[in-house]
Nucleic acid binder design. Sequence first.
DNA 1: GTTGACTCTATACCCGGGTACAAGGTTGAT
DNA 2: ATCAACCTTGTACCCGGGTATAGAGTCAAC
Lengths: 134, 134
Amino acid sequence: MRIGKLAAQAEVNVQTIRLYERIGLLKKPGRRKSGYREYTDDAVTFIRFIRQAKSLGFTLNEIKSLIDMREKGSHTMADMRAIAQARLRAIDEKIQQLQAMREAIQHGLNHCGCPEQFPACVFVQLFEGNESNP
Amino acid sequence: MRIGKLAAQAEVNVQTIRLYERIGLLKKPGRRKSGYREYTDDAVTFIRFIRQAKSLGFTLNEIKSLIDMREKGSHTMADMRAIAQARLRAIDEKIQQLQAMREAIQHGLNHCGCPEQFPACVFVQLFEGNESNP
DNA sequence: GTTGACTCTATACCCGGGTACAAGGTTGAT
DNA sequence: ATCAACCTTGTACCCGGGTATAGAGTCAAC
């Protein structure tokens, strides 16, 4: 199939496919005499894999690492698990960080004893020199 | 003080200060005859406020909204709280999303009954059906 | 055999939040 | 008076992950 159909079936933009090819995520497909790219059905699955991995928070670089490993046959389960675990750790860190932000803001809102009196507000405190703020 | 000192005291880059000025986050300081920017001490506090808000996950645009409100005197507590609460909601959404990713990956790792047997791995499953791409 | 939809390459642009020159002018201590 | 360290503007570049455009060539249905 040509690129447009692949894009439709994999639910991505045509440009995105060419981008993925350029950065080495997708192998270069065959070409017609006209120069048109010619894909087989498994390209659909492959792009879906990429999108799925992306939706799990893997960056395109990480995905490329997985692909490269697999391609070189140098992949072991340990390698793969290590990548997955690194991603888990990154996700956990991010969650911790967001929870800390959450708490700081929530704390500000809770301890702002000024339903309508502006100057006591946590935001005002932020403006007025970091007197007592977290 | 001149921009270099301000940058040092506020612990940001000189370029960053100019960027903040350009996007309207910092109001334009006075200038010497030579054209040099001349800041007062409260600029330090102000930049620290920006960094603090940023560390709580506010984007520069959100911070600009807070500042604009304050400048225009059109700020009410309700406005400020609304912004803070919007940020809280955004943070919560992000956390939900990360937790879903976390679970999906963890599930994959747990249910991959192949400490060293490659073909049953969750990653391999992702690849399955496209044996011949990269 | 013409039309309209498709594809090709190359290049530029978008977002946010900066960072890095380059070429010139100023400051201030010696 | 010199000289390093500072400042000015303008421009371009970085990251990741795309999206948009122009100008030219190709495919297929009628």
